[in-house]
Nucleic acid binder design. Sequence first.
RNA 1: GUGAUUGUAGCUCAGUUGGUUAGAGCGCCAGUUUGUGGCUCUGGAGGUCGCCGGUUCGAACCCGGUCUUUCACCCCA
Length: 461
Amino acid sequence: MKVAKPTLPKGTRDFLPEEMRKRQYIFNIIESHFKKFGFLPVETPAQENLSVLSGKYGEEGDQLMFRILNSGDFLKDISPDSLTGGYKNVLPYISEKALRYDLTVPFARMVVMHQHEINFPFKRYQIQPVWRADRPQKGRYREFYQCDADVIGSDSLLLEAELITLYYEIFSALNLKVNILLNNRKILTALSIYLGIPEQLTEFTIILDKLDKIGIAGVVEAWNAKGFPESVGEAFINLDIKSTSHLDFRNTINRFQVLFSDIPVGLEGLSELITVWELLPHFNRTLQQHVSLDFTLARGLNYYTGAILEVKSLDTEMGSIGGGGRYDNLTGLFGLPGISGMGISLGADRIYDVIEAAGKFPEYLISAVQVLLIYFDDQTLPATLKVLQELRNAGISAEIYPDQKKIGKQYEFAAKKNIPWVGLIGTSELSTQTLKVKYLPTGAEYSWDIPSFISEIKKAK
RNA sequence: GUGAUUGUAGCUCAGUUGGUUAGAGCGCCAGUUUGUGGCUCUGGAGGUCGCCGGUUCGAACCCGGUCUUUCACCCCA
């Protein structure tokens, strides 16, 4: 057989131990916080039936989905004629499954299928990879992990506040500075009504969302290009919308309460924002400082109906590292209407990139194994193995070099693997019942018995 | 999906108007040191120049295709 050149599909990566240690550090922090907030773990399959996923993410999403070719002779029912109509006609016949595109829709599917086994309101967390056939670029991969926490079966605004708190606590634990942007879909609806273009809500918000990127002039220009009346742009400029910090939250709300006095949905959105805002200090006294009201925040996924959240890193330039919101009818897509949910998602791979760029991974991650024991010779091997067992029983991660190689090689191995302690039992140590220990970071050497060795390691930790 | 961009040793990169045997630094291996990593010194291994095709007497270099990298747009974590 011809030797295959080792390659990887576009946009996918291997993770060596050094990277995995850092990834696990992120996952562990996220997961422990999810648990602390009362969320329970679930998993769903990597594959979903196409009928479950298609149409849930808009046309764009359908295009970015990795479809799975049917097994066996997937062409047996295809007539040559049907090929002339383009790939979209043939697709339903040759593919009926796809890789999951996010975690929220499969979760909704799961809730509906297991509704009689689930105790509502149901708080679940899920940390699994998702796949998107996007072109890779900065912070964008074709296979990446999402970490989701959702509560389904309650429309309480307490959840909005609680999930914002959860976001903040996770990023604090990761030592990252973030700005949590907050908006409400109802505000966007009200804005479109106020500007007289309620029918064009979607086009309106998609462009509005780009405000921080292309500026107000760019936004107005884009609206005009879409055929919106000039008055829309003018009226919008007069609204003077900008991302507001905690200091002027109240003023902004008050101002829009006047503007939306005849638009019930707008007043409702504002009142929800106030409620959430006022709950925040009850979870964390300083939390409001990290939350910004941003009426231009739209978010693409069209199932959001209430609150919308997005997390921006302040440490490094990066797209959003988290997003979430309230959805009132996601399970309705699968025949279980009237159940409201609220969820957040964290992009672990982007968080990794931000921490890496900011140099904020903790130092201790570099050494996973604490002790290497030297394989000196067969005469001292039993004593060395005894030490190995005692170290492990004491909860210390330890290994013995498996071959009797030159001692210098064994030390070098430890150094390369960032193992700080090297222990050696040679002939003289055997007679004195001690261990020659070298601490590689300083090069210092000691003669210790096993109990002192163990206590010194624990002390250094 | 649109528009750019990258590919030469394990890594980071040189490589003249197309010319014989493609280089450097770091890393790696061996020795210096058969009870000790890092420092020094000595020696050594390692390359289908991403892949396929074309032009040419001759291609790492020019042309086409393809894969890949990175980046922007679209969209998003």
